[in-house]
Design a protein around this nucleic acid. Structure first.
Length: 113
RNA sequence: CGGGCCGGUCAGGCGGCCGCUCCGGCUCACGCCGGAGAGGAAAGUCCGCACUUCACAGAGCGCGGUAGCGGGUAACACCCGUCGCCCGAAUCGGCUUACGCCGGCAAGGGCCGGAACAGGGGCACAGUGACGAUGCCCGCGCUCCCACCUCGGGAGCGCGGGAGUGAAACGGCUAACCUCUACCGGAAGCAAGGCCAAGUCGGGACGCCACCAGGCUGCUCGCCCAGUCCCAGGUAGGCUGCACGAGGCCGGCGGCAACGCCGGUCCCAGAUAGAUGGCCGCCCACGACAGAAUGCGGCUUAUCGACCGGUCCGACGC
RNA sequence: CGGGGAGUGGCGCAGCCUGGCAGCGCGCGGCGUUUGGGACGCCGAGGUCGCGAGUUCAAAUCUCGCCUCCCCGA
């Protein structure tokens, strides 16, 4: 997931979290909103309550990998914030990927409707 | 062979597919090719420096730190050597019926380890007495007084002794109490600091000739300066600082060592919601603690294991 | 990343600087008072002083090293 696909500015993250569409899955909470960029952009905030720097880095990398695998299916100009819940640290990689697919279906239905 | 102790190195490996960051080259561009890519503690932030800003950087007092001696270093509370004190197994010696107790010996480990006749302060409880005692108790001797048949009582002086209490009793302890001596230390910190862009651009207080604002800070002096502070409101972007360094490796020389000098060789992370990941196969003793954020030297703490080296004691063999 | 502060009964705090007894308020338990409750009065229980070393005869207090929590700074 290269730099073009990252949601980087603090203001953008705050905008998506406050105004974006919200989809809740077992391991993750997704916020999605239309963005100004051509490419889809993603941010994964991991707070201190997930443990040490090693544990936080590992959780963020696994979530980002799950998102990267679905990157070709993402619509352009969509900003996503994937916020992990407490049980996300124990979730298997397949569970994270399923959560991403589920969120994508829900958002497409919501945007179409 | 048995036992004790010390030091160092590494931090799963190989292969395949899909991905991330930086650098170099090519390309109008999408992109392609090549190279590099977390730690011994990156951690805690406990010390020491570099660097930057703060009156154009000064003085005195205060305050803080260090502490045998010598050396190393950019510097240190770190490291090395050495002196002193303490700890330190079996075997050994002594005692004991025995359990066991006492004493001494190694490698090695630990020590904020200057000064208590420069001064001030403190030493609870217990105890006659605790920082001082020419004082308390007991015994003996001498003198005097009271009483006197005898036993006796009191005062003073001299000599001798004081079990026990307690950490400590005419001799100490405490400077990780103040203090003294020697040496060191200006303060704040890369969210420091510099440049650019965007943006709101109201109100109040003090000051603008010399003290009376502020700046170097706790105080005094000196110096600088036209702004300083508070409330409300706005911004939360980019570049730089920022990675060639007290640098790594190899060899030689000096030194007991820490370390230094000389020569050769190498370029070795640089993110900014923050780069090392995901999946699969094989091997083994089945993988711990843990993720750079200005850089470096230490200390401390966490840590599954693997390997290497050194040293001391005892027993046996030659 | 950097700077600062605090851990003491169940809760909120004092004591620490200047070392020897851990105390205050609320809460809790029992008794009294009341028809009962509250309030009030009397009595009482409850603390490894965050953890581990060191200095001292003696440490909540002094020194050093850890742990947890909180606050501030572009």
């Amino acid at each position: 997931m290269n730099r073009r696909n990252r949601l980087r500015r603090a203001a953008d993250i705050a905008r998506v979290r406050s105004r974006g569409a919200k989809v809740v899955t077992r391991p993750l909470v997704f916020f999605m909103a239309p963005g100004q960029s051509e490419a889809p952009r993603v941010a994964v905030p991991v707070s201190r309550r997930f443990g040490s720097a090693v544990r936080r880095n590992r959780l963020r990398r696994r979530i980002r990998e799950a998102l990267r695998c679905q990157l070709p299916d993402l619509p352009a100009a969509l900003d996503i914030v994937a916020l992990p819940r407490q049980r996300a640290a124990l979730a298997a990689s397949e569970e994270l990927a399923a959560a991403v697919r589920h969120a994508l279906r829900r958002s497409q239905a919501r945007l179409a409707g």
